[in-house]
Write a protein that binds this DNA or RNA. Structure first.
Lengths: 248, 248
DNA sequence: TTAGCTTCTTGTCAGTTCGACAAAAAGCGG
DNA sequence: CCGCTTTTTGTCGAACTGACAAGAAGCTAA
């Protein structure tokens, strides 16, 4: 296939992070304003080159999470998304980026004065609705991250990663509503999440009270796979379902 | 973060393929016997280095599919899996591999005399049950590919990618049984797949006949997302589901 | 103190789906 | 025509879903 003098080409490897959280019931993503060219001044996902050839990719994602976002990887969900390597995606040369999805509970604005000071939480709605743009192909990466989140909270307990260690069922409902973009019936939601075995377990003798009736507190359960799953309502009312017995 | 003389390290990029198909109702994966060190003589996933810095990763996957497996990427399902970059995964140096999952309908053995002659279909059961080993971290990649397939045929129409353009409902059932490793009730399966709108559409006036009653033929429908989903039975009978009204 | 407000929690109820199984339908081989 | 195989249609009780009413438990303001 290749003669012996052929040397495989090498590429530069970066890590990009889609970090999602909930702030006042709206889904937000952490973005940085680029300080250097290319795309100077534009918004971009936090990320950067792997530090040396001995660094594992996952470790690089943890490091960027700490350096650029000021977040501790051990306390939040972090999973790999796709890898992006279109030859023209970066004008500086052949740069391949491994994207990661991070899910964090509600957090304060990144502290000024730190390395993460250039980062800020932005409502994802600004980008999904089309007006605002992102540097490089980061809009595509963000879309993939959002779709991954939408799908995974259907079948896994990922939604609890948006919550603190203890949370109310209404907190959890806010997560589903923000990620899916749908309002849900609180009464059906309340019973449904409890019927899924291992999803959430009650924390006894403690309730959180804000305005109405105090709510029971829960914590994430042992099960990762939700069965039955939480199915999101579909955007389109679906073409049509063939009547069962109409065989023509 | 880095001074200006710092140059980001570059890595070698490869593509590895998990190519799945059904042969006589059993799930098979295409593997090659390595002709060179490292891991000479061992079984490995087909794959190779990207050919030059201008080649897109997806295109590289298509090329390897053609060169190593003799398959045409336009006629089968091809999607990206995870990217593997542990520093010690390849003794030759820092080699990062982007894995792809390909799903093909039942196919004959790769033709001898071609570039793909080193490749052969192996039952996945040989590897999942533990005895036989794979080169590098390819066992891990295979496991991820299998888990992806198991999950995606639940929620998407991916299962039809294992079938020819027309197929019977029993053919489709064989796919689910092979990928999940569970036997399913043909009668419930028959009605369930038809109730999912857009999953499969009947091909009129044509039936396939082998031994028993001739079976109606179908083709893949327009819908990608299955709603309601096909839920696989769980290995463990699940701990226990709290009685609905037991609130203590 | 009590009425009103908010939010959480439990009930109800009809339509749908699911899983286990029976039985009919449609071919083939003898 | 009889038995065999495989596909297709029925049946039926249990479980789940989605819509909505209503009770429970706090807070606040008159």
């Amino acid at each position: 296939m290749h003669n012996e003098t052929w040397r495989p080409p090498c590429v530069l490897l970066t890590v990009d992070l889609v970090i999602l959280t909930l702030r006042s019931s709206a889904l937000h993503v952490l973005l940085v304003e680029r300080g250097i060219d290319p795309h100077k001044g534009e918004l971009a996902l936090p990320g950067g080159f792997i530090s040396d050839t001995g660094e594992d990719i996952f470790d690089a994602a943890c490091r960027e999470l700490r350096e650029e976002a000021g977040l501790d990887a051990t306390s939040l969900h972090l999973e790999q998304l796709n890898t992006y390597g279109r030859p023209d995606r970066d004008p500086r040369g052949r740069i391949v980026s491994v994207a990661y999805l991070a899910i964090a509970p509600g957090l304060p604005e990144p502290e000024a004065g730190t390395d993460a000071s250039a980062a800020s939480w932005r409502p994802v709605e600004e980008f999904t609705s089309g007006h605002r743009k992102l540097a490089f192909d980061h809009r595509e990466i963000l879309d993939h991250g959002l779709e991954r989140a939408r799908t995974k909270i259907e079948n896994t307990s990922l939604a609890t990663a948006f919550c603190d260690t203890t949370f109310t069922i209404t907190d959890l409902q806010r997560v589903y509503e923000a990620v899916w973009g749908f309002e849900l019936d609180p009464r059906n939601f309340y019973r449904k999440v409890q019927a899924i075995s291992g999803f959430i377990t009650p924390v006894d003798s403690d309730r959180r009270t804000t305005k109405g009736r105090p709510a029971r507190l829960f914590q994430a359960g042992p099960e990762h796979l939700l069965r039955p799953p939480m199915l999101r309502p579909l955007p389109q009312p679906r073409p049509f379902s063939r009547p069962r017995s109409e065989t023509s």
